[in-house]
Design a protein around this nucleic acid. Structure first.
Lengths: 249, 249
DNA sequence: TCAAAAGTGTTCTTATTACACCCATGG
DNA sequence: CCATGGGTGTAATAAGAACACTTTTGA
């Protein structure tokens, strides 16, 4: 099954007609900066849609796996490397790309803004974080892709403790709560949130306090991935921090 | 955005290199026959892997949307029409197709076997239902695709009342339970299952009984999609028929 | 002393789980 | 009359939701 790694397929000619398409990857990188949820966009330096803000995406090489292409394209366009990208869905409407038939595989990730330096390539003119509320009017079908990925993020965040790596190594429970509120776009109850998070037992109380804040200093915690892994494997538990249903009448 | 619906792209030549790929759709059609869960496979009538059993899939035309291609391919290969296909994921490993770079978008559906006639085209030599336990050793990366889609089915079935259309219009609660057990591959508690399903309030008791069975006849029910829709819209409820966690120690 | 965010428990309600026996029918 | 699957209830436990006041700090 891995015989054909080159560009010289030995296919019967009736199939030639099909080998005229291209595919791209598009990355939806959500970033958190200790307050807001943002998305990484580039100002395109190439046709089509040159000079417009768009999702960082580009063509996949013939001999390149999709996941690898997503990483490469992201790094080339924005300088962001070593992120875990998850495939969301493929968008392939005829006519979505002005150069011909191009389908695009969408990937998303969620990272901590301060951990990464944006480093613009020659292909992109600019790359920068944009507030999620401002993401509209993107070229191609990028608005639709963005929406689909945001929904996926919301789903994932309820099923697993996504997001701890977005906070400083030592964080307060309120910071964690704000992160969840930013992603889920809803307010959470402070006491219930704390009860739930602490009962999950993968946060370690560092017995340290915040310093220099103009209010009562908060305790600092860290995430223990090892304990989390054990819990997850033992029980396949699920993680839901927001109320699952509205109050009736 | 919908300007380019033809095959004559006006693209700058540096991009030509990318337009040498193809894509296919592969369909994973789960079927239920009042007892077992099966998958629809075809015996391929074309290279590559001629004469082998495989998922019904084929190339997407240049001017065809992905969803439409999935429907067309399924109908052409198996005669199965008018099913609701859901996109699952795209598989694009280099070398997964011997003719060149071909990525495939996987779709799945779940249908009632007796509602559809299998009607084999010239492209496929045969098409038939196979027990899900026998699905292995498929060509390409079809084993992997099958697994991914089966997992998606299990997830979906816990989140929404998928599957009522797989039963006769009038069905018994035991039939419904067997369906869930087949999909989830686990036994469910009869009383708890009934309690849960009935409390959801979208089954209508028809006040009719089975006839001709050599045991106490069961009550017949029908699914009320209208009531289901209202519930879903009001509460965004979720539907989980199997225990969500194991008994501890 | 004030503003600002931290921290903390209880009660009510609902959902989940485990579990065993009698019933109606056809053969 | 027996084999087969249909049908039923309860109790114990766990999880979810709603809700308000005191504490600590820096300015």
């Amino acid at each position: 099954m891995d015989k054909m790694l080159t560009n010289t397929p030995v296919k019967p000619s009736p199939f030639d007609n099909f080998f005229k398409s291209a595919f791209t990857v598009d990355n939806i990188i959500f970033g958190f900066d200790e307050a807001d949820l943002k998305v990484l966009l580039i100002k395109r330096g190439e046709v089509p849609f040159e000079n417009q803000w768009a999702l960082p995406g580009n063509f996949v090489y013939q001999d390149e796996n999709l996941d690898a292409a997503a990483e490469r394209v992201l790094a080339e366009l924005t300088g962001v490397k070593d992120v875990h990208l998850e495939q969301v869905r493929t968008f392939g409407r005829v006519g979505r790309h002005p150069f011909g038939r191009v389908i695009t595989v969408a990937y998303y990730s969620l990272i901590k803004i301060s951990d990464y330096n944006i480093d613009v390539s020659s292909i992109a003119q600019e790359a920068d974080w944009h507030s999620i509320d401002d993401v509209k009017g993107l070229p191609f079908d990028h608005d639709e892709i963005f929406k689909a990925c945001f929904n996926r993020l919301k789903l994932n965040v309820k099923r697993q403790p996504v997001g701890f790596e977005l906070l400083p190594p030592k964080f307060t429970l309120t910071e964690l709560q704000h992160l969840y509120e930013a992603i889920l776009e809803e307010k959470l109850d402070k006491r219930n949130f704390r009860k739930k998070i602490l009962s999950m037992d993968f946060l370690i109380d560092l017995n340290e306090l915040q310093a220099g804040v103009a209010h009562r200093p908060a305790k600092l915690y860290k995430f223990d991935p090892e304990r989390y892994r054990r819990l997850y494997e033992e029980e396949g538990f699920h993680f839901d921090v927001s109320p699952s249903k509205q109050k009736k009448k």
